[in-house]
Amino acid sequence: MAILQVNNLRKGFGDTDVLKGISFSLEQGQVLAIIGSSGGGKSTLLRCLNFLETPDEGEIWVAGKQLLSASEEEIRQNRLHFGLVFQNFNLFPQYSVLENITLAPTLLKQGTAEQIREKAMGLLEKVGLKEKAESYPHQLSGGQQQRVAIARALALNPQILCFDEPTSALDPELTGEVLRVIRGLKNGGNTMIVVTHEMEFARSVADVVMFMADGVIEEMDAPEQVFGDPRSEKTRAFIRGAQEKF
């Protein structure tokens, strides 16, 4: 059974249809990379999955259970199935690195203070920032902040971790450290959805690549297929364009 099943998801803002019926499924432990040109609806899809936007239509199933969003409380609970790492980190500036990670588990009473702290320190070790536990976000580089944001998302054990262009706000020399962490998470068996413009990364890490254009899934397949022998003309043009950039 798929861990995530999305059926006919639709979302519009005013008169513009942004998602025009998105359906796909993802297996446990798989990494899905979403690529596509600007404005194609990639962020909107991730935001729908994290219930930051309410879809106009469609179903989201996680591990065989449909997520309904009738009440505010239900929406809050639904969000816990997913984690989201933002392009610009969105760390809480007034909290130390460690507090950023422990805040949500503490509010959700996911253990004693000691257990939560220990787990957070473990996560910091995983992202290579154990010695920064007491620092504040503004004292860190962008790459370090993004790694803290990843640890913060992991602290709630989301079943599916989403990334929206996690390296786009970073200087080129800092993208490597973040991508390495994501690669490490894949090896740890995490199910992930990564919206990215890093084609090389998508090709080497993803189990499945989705190419989105104008609110539809133009093509979704194994990376060798999508990058090596794209079926759709749009995909072909996009990938050719992306290769020329480098």
Partner: peptide, 24 residues
């Protein structure tokens, strides 16, 4: 982004206001 970060971490509206936004 501050509100959204709180939301995806499962915080309630009042937790976001008092724990995340207020001091800022």
């Amino acid at each position: 982004g501050q509100y959204e970060a709180g939301q995806v971490l499962g915080m309630t509206k009042s937790q976001i206001f008092f724990r995340v936004v207020l001091l800022q």
